[in-house]
């Protein structure tokens, strides 16, 4: 069985990696090994079925959800997000826009997700829906509408939030993600202030994480970054999460999406 062979090979690869300066190459090999079996596909399948299933008090599907390309258009929608939506008067990332669709079309209150727990209930539903939507922008170029003044404003706030130091450890996002070639323990850290690093990060989330068998949206990724920064907890889909997403996506502008990604 290739599965078992794969595990043996991985063990050898990790043992070798211990002597190396960086595990990046080994992780890349592992990624290649299971690239055609990214378990994120299971979430995508579930998401597609949830998209088309009548749910909530209004017993409606999400097939009329407008992700910015018109009602029901999923293809290419994520590549242009976050974006300004005239109906809500806000710049929204994928997850906050899905909240709007769930609320307006299905009657599911946003609080079901915002006040929920990771990997449970409606937040888990959100994971699957995000996996479905981002798969339909895979291979497409990141193209934010930076001419939009609201998006531009969020970029400016996101950039400042990126450098905002606070809390008992005085950390900001830039502490870990502001320079090239840095790592925490053995984990390589992308430099999010430059195009290449921003593409590597924004272009590969949401992602399946092999270490805990979970599918994480960018909302989940950012939440855990702030946890490790020792700040208070950012609310799900709050302004800071959207602003930081705009900053990352804008820095990655023109890069190709590899979504959903596969992480250690």
């Amino acid at each position: 069985m290739r599965k078992t062979l794969g595990m043996a090979a991985l063990a050898a690869v990790l043992a070798g990696g211990a002597q190396a300066q960086s595990t990046a190459d080994e992780i890349a090999k592992y990624r290649e090994m299971i690239a055609d079996g990214n378990p994120a596909e299971l979430f995508e399948m579930e998401g597609e079925s949830l998209w088309k299933t009548p749910r909530g008090p209004k017993k409606a599907t999400l097939e009329q959800c407008d992700l910015g390309q018109g009602p029901g258009v999923v293809d290419g929608a994520f590549a242009r997000m976050p974006r300004y939506f005239a109906d809500t008067g806000r710049v929204q990332d994928l997850e906050s826009r899905l909240l709007t669709c769930m609320e307006t079309l299905q009657g599911i209150p946003a609080s079901a997700v915002v006040d929920g727990d990771w990997n449970k209930g409606e937040r888990k539903t959100m994971d699957a829906l995000a996996a479905y939507v981002v798969t339909h922008s895979r291979g497409q170029k990141i193209q934010l509408d930076l001419a939009n003044p609201q998006t531009r404003r969020m970029y400016e706030l996101g950039k400042r939030a990126f450098y905002y130091r606070s809390g008992p450890m005085d950390f900001s996002c830039s502490t870990c993600h502001g320079e090239d070639g840095k790592r925490i323990r053995l984990q390589d850290l992308p430099n999010l202030t430059h195009k290449e690093g921003a593409i590597a990060a924004w272009g590969s989330w949401p992602a399946y994480r092999v270490s805990n068998s979970q599918f994480w949206t960018m909302q989940h990724r950012l939440n855990d970054c702030f946890r490790q920064q020792r700040t208070a907890e950012p609310e799900f889909a709050s302004e800071v999460t959207v602003a930081l997403s705009v900053y990352m996506a804008a820095t990655a502008q023109g890069g190709v999406l590899q979504t959903p990604g596969l992480k250690r």
């Binding site: 069985m1 290739r2 599965k3 299971i34 055609d36 079996g37 378990p39 299971l42 092999v210 068998s213």
Partner: peptide, 16 residues
């Protein structure tokens, strides 16, 4: 025909 056990990962991938 394959026998699986607890050493196989979550969300298994099989190719043959």
């Amino acid at each position: 025909l394959a026998q699986f056990g607890p050493s196989v990962s979550t969300n298994p991938y099989l190719s043959f």
